[in-house]
Design a protein around this nucleic acid. Sequence first.
DNA 1: AAATGCATGTTCGGCTTTCGCGACATCGAG
DNA 2: CTCGATGTCGCGAAAGCCGAACATGCATTT
Lengths: 304, 304
Amino acid sequence: MFGFRDIEIVREIVRAGGFRAAAQRSGLAQSAISTRIAALEKRLGIVLFDRVGRQVRLSSCGRRFLEEADRLIQTRDRIIQELTRKGGLNGTVRIGVAETIVHTFLTTMLNLLRVGHETVRFELSVDTSEQLSRKLVEDEIDVGILLRESLPKGAVSTPLQPIELGWYASSAIPLPPEPLTIAELAGHPVVTFSKGTTPFEQIERLLSQADGAPPVLHGSASLSTVMHLVADGFGIGVVPTRMVEAADPLGLGERIRRLPTRPEAHIQNLQFVAAYFHERNHKAGEVITAAAVEADQIDLKKRS
Amino acid sequence: MFGFRDIEIVREIVRAGGFRAAAQRSGLAQSAISTRIAALEKRLGIVLFDRVGRQVRLSSCGRRFLEEADRLIQTRDRIIQELTRKGGLNGTVRIGVAETIVHTFLTTMLNLLRVGHETVRFELSVDTSEQLSRKLVEDEIDVGILLRESLPKGAVSTPLQPIELGWYASSAIPLPPEPLTIAELAGHPVVTFSKGTTPFEQIERLLSQADGAPPVLHGSASLSTVMHLVADGFGIGVVPTRMVEAADPLGLGERIRRLPTRPEAHIQNLQFVAAYFHERNHKAGEVITAAAVEADQIDLKKRS
DNA sequence: AAATGCATGTTCGGCTTTCGCGACATCGAG
DNA sequence: CTCGATGTCGCGAAAGCCGAACATGCATTT
């Protein structure tokens, strides 16, 4: 084993060209240097310096040692510098987002964050709002963008623009002449968010109002999958309108079409918030939140 | 500042999940852990652990610290392992070779060395034998392959196969019917090794025997340049035969041709040796020497 | 709801180990 | 032999550590 001090002293000996000179330059007694090196060589079981006449020279092993170990000191200094640098972010910031965010303004947000935080690594996790809430609490992520209803207690939150949900169907089926009623909607299989989510529950309540055959409601944890199912005519679906607008217009975006519906079939907007625990991550939280708010608005403007 | 011990303790706290558990696992009193962390946090001026209730959790900074600093320990362990590994070479071996070697068996030698020394970095320097000798003495290289006449005192040396020198001319000029005399050779500008080298001096002596116009003798520190000059018809030249044989047969090797000469125009062979200082680099020296001897023979066989 | 128990982190006095200093011994080169 | 360098030894200072007492938070009991 060896410590940082050992490296520093070896380096100083080489720079100064001898034990005595190194001692003087580092404010130590010569005997201290001698003892340290002797102990270090004994510990490692190798010879660091060749004592030839009245001078010492780095041995082959010594040169090797210094080459490598010198980097350790440099790394340590860099760590200290980065760690004690005031202001700004550093290190890894763990961001958790709901899938809707991925398909709306996440890219814009990351691009905003990238400028001015070149040295910061962002670690993304995509999950349901409930899971994101848990991860926030358990400190598995630093900042989360999730549904307001899942917001954990004590977290600082900033509301984002409401996300409108719309009914969609494959472009292959003919557009109805009149806005659809709940009963008409219930006549199709419906695909949307997972069971347990607010939209799912709301749609379930909505469809159960309709008489006749019991409605078929499928949930999927992946909104991409929902859109694909809708495009493939598996059923009609409820997805965020901004997500469809953001979809590749030559691909998926072209293959599904919004269904006009009567007002009573309207699904409540999704209300997302950027959230973090102030006492734990206020710095990263504020930065990410600001970026999210800005990206959200930029994205909204882009769609209009 | 912080030491390796600090990192180890922080890591142990995280692994064990608390100060107390970490203390137990590392054979320390719990108070020692507490004190160390407090001191470390004070020194760095940042909070490493969030004290929440009866448990501590890595703070944002703490996570960052551990992420980076943990690598320091890993690097240190790797250094120790490499440094204390018995037998074999490790680290960087600095090899100095004369240019002739570059164009004969150096590649073969390096390929031989590569197997069995995958982790060793070889650092090559190409220089004149005199400079190589100086570098050996001054410990700027570990092993040198240089002319025997430049061998420094006290170095262990192993002779390699003698390198034959030959007279060469551009393939563009017609081949003479009879072996050339010294006087005939002296009629052309001659290009060869640098001034100050043994071949240069010998050739100079040789040519001065001839009567008539004073001979023109050019020296070049780069044998490649010499060969190019000869190929371009700038003059005739003296270069190692093995070097010409090793030259790309479709390129330079095709554009120059050996001149038959009378025996008195024969230039003395170059005698190279692999050399090192035993007390300083016997391990690397033996390995490199063995590789050089073997590569030399392999290369010689290849040319025959 | 208050009391109790348990587990954890923090602080403080005293002890042990490590580290460095200074003086002297030792060694090699000139 | 002398000079300039490294190695060795005893002493003192500082750091590190231990153990105990103390404070706090959470869970269970009363």
